[in-house]
Design a protein around this nucleic acid. Structure first.
Lengths: 346, 346
DNA sequence: GTGAAAGCGCTAACAC
DNA sequence: GTGTTAGCGCTTTCAC
């Protein structure tokens, strides 16, 4: 394991200049004679030099690494820690977040360390990690509303940016979607299709995004003669969509339009409907939310409200980067607009 | 950003000892007087000391970080780089890998940096990253058979462990499943159900695992009077499962048992069958592979061949850790056994 | 424009 | 057992 290639010193000797000059060339600092610059480049080439990041970090106090943390609720037990990761990625949402984050970081030679914070110990790990300077800041995606991590990070004065507005105010930038507007789009679509018995399988009401989507949906529906739209609460999983729809049908057999708070639940809903012999969209129209991979994979393909997760995640990374580099001081929020994507299900 | 808490020096002063002693206590080296040990602990507590990892790495030449790299084929274009991440996680497989890896690393205060190597530039990034000493080694999960990354890592003499046996031999340890045996289990299940018209939707034949599963399946089938089992090649995605099954039904309308090379395709197969009015398992039995989340989510729940991905991933991490620490020298392979999980689909 | 030199905070010989 | 000391490889004043 004693892999340590040539150092600045070696390159300097080879090029017949000082360490400082090589460092300048490596870091693209101007004020270096073009000829010398070229000589150094060649020396680097010859020696196969690669800068040692630990040494650089030690002086720059920066790692070009950020923690990408998926943060759960209070107290998942230890046994489930590995299952947490699997369940998290069961929703295409997180894969998209990763993709968006990487698309921003990679061109800048920055990299994400993946962390899960589903227990108090795990949260402590995240704080320690950042305090040790192993990462310059955190990108936090919470799966629960009452996620305590943002507050902990704030107390420790560690840089972070959040996906979605935190339930209790913390001095961090965040990106979010106009969820209320998303709910409205779904309602309008169902109404435009002539739907007369609308209902919704909403997300966990503890999550603000769920409440907003629901509010927007009901808002428009109320304005069009549906003051009391039935809503059943789901948990953003396929299973919970199946459950919710089963209950919904039992209580309101004549629904003809359902707004699901995400695509995964919409998929479950379609499954239930098909099993009951109801055609989608002819008998019951279904509108999803997210426009994730399952929206296209679903039979029928889902009409859904698009959330530009990749762009949002990239923006989140950009904000963090700016905070870290001191280019941005005050917390900011960037809100994205949803968009209706029409496919077959509604 | 000038966050730098107290240093060893500060703690030493506070405790009235030398830096070395504090270092010993921090690193749990014995040969320290219990009383002094306690004094140091208190000083650490008082000062709120956290070791600076860059400084430590500089001397230990270790980062306690590993690269978890998902490696694609040769030449995905740049635009799709962010889509690659999303598509990768569309298969529950990778979430499970992450979970397994983290379950090993976390208790050891090690962490994974997520990297995607779907293009030549991206692969180069991975090499640079490791050469700079930003990670101690790589865990490589290839999505394609002809992944060039392992060879590149080997040439650079960087430590790595692979998920699945590489198509061309490289001097790295790897974990794998006895895929052939998995194929056999599937065949036996279908035969036990009295299936008389077996077929299979296999994985990409460029992938060795696909070939093995197919071989095991056909092997048993041949031995039981089915010398020529129809096989259609899929791509491990839900869509490809749908396509493959559609083609299969067109050519062999009287199949009554299908072995899908993964659960995602099995799900697609079930969808097609249901659309065609064929009942699963009564008209056509379906056996999946992996036992991932979709196996339970599928209607009907899938009978499938379990691949213990989490355990395999954890083992992969363990092997890498041992290589890094010099506790293991020669490349090793650890092969896991598949297991049939009986549910409703067959 | 370039070099000399002083650290960044830590670990690991080596003395005592 | 504990302290002293010499770096790890890099960036960055500060002279020249």
């Amino acid at each position: 394991m004693s892999r340590q290639g040539p150092t600045l010193e070696d390159v300097a000797r080879d090029a017949g200049v000082s360490r400082a000059t090589v460092s300048r060339v490596v870091n693209g600092v101007r004020n270096v004679d073009p000829a010398i610059q070229e000589a150094v480049r060649q020396a680097i080439e010859r020696t196969g030099y690669t800068p040692n990041r630990a040494a650089r970090s030690l002086v720059t106090r920066r790692t070009e690494t950020v923690a990408l943390v998926v943060s759960g609720a209070g107290d998942t037990s230890e046994e489930t820690q590995s299952a947490f990761a699997a369940s998290v990625f069961a929703d295409p949402f997180f894969g998209r977040v990763v993709g968006g984050v990487v698309s921003y970081l990679r061109p800048r030679s920055m990299h994400p360390v993946l962390m899960f914070a589903e227990s108090p110990e795990a949260r402590h790990e995240v704080l320690t990690y950042l305090r040790q300077g192993r990462a310059d800041g955190a990108l936090v995606v919470s799966t629960h509303a009452d996620d305590p991590l943002p507050a902990l990070l704030a107390d420790a004065r560690l840089p972070a940016v959040l996906f979605a507005r935190p339930s209790r105010p913390v001095p961090f930038s965040y990106v979010d979607l106009d969820h209320r507007d998303g709910g409205r789009l779904a309602a309008e679509r169902l109404l435009a299709r002539g739907c007369r018995g609308p209902a919704t399988v909403c997300g966990p009401l503890a999550v603000s995004a769920s409440r907003e989507r629901l509010a927007g949906f009901r808002d428009v529906m109320a304005r069009h003669g549906h003051p009391h739209v039935p809503a059943v609460e789901g948990g953003f999983t396929l299973d919970s969509g199946i459950d919710a729809m089963t209950r919904l049908l039992a209580e309101y057999p004549d629904v003809d339009g359902v707004f699901a708070a995400n695509d995964l639940m919409a998929q479950g809903i379609c499954q239930v409907l098909r099993e009951r012999g109801r055609r989608v969209p002819d008998d019951v129209a279904v509108v999803g939310f997210d426009d994730s991979g399952v929206a296209v994979a679903c039979r029928p393909p889902l009409t859904t409200v698009r959330q530009p997760v990749e762009r949002m995640a990239a923006e989140m990374a950009r904000l963090l980067d700016e905070h870290i580099r001191g280019e941005r001081d005050k917390p900011t929020s960037v809100i994205f607009d949803p968009e209706l994507v029409a496919r077959a299900s509604a």
